[in-house]
Amino acid sequence: MTFPVDDTHIPLPEIAPPDQTDHPVLAAILTELRDRQQDPLVVAHYEDAP
């Protein structure tokens, strides 16, 4: 169990999507995000459905 130091004021890093990657999980995420760009509006779905 982690007792974090109080770093909660530190901003999150700004991470730009890489143009390409050999990392298989990141590659899958980038593909999904490119598909998502086609949606005029991204909406949230109920989590109790896969």
Partner: peptide, 14 residues
């Protein structure tokens, strides 16, 4: 979460 960190909106309510 990874998508949000990369600047994309989420499709999940969580």
């Amino acid at each position: 979460i990874a998508g949000l960190l990369l600047g994309s909106p989420s499709r999940a309510e969580a």
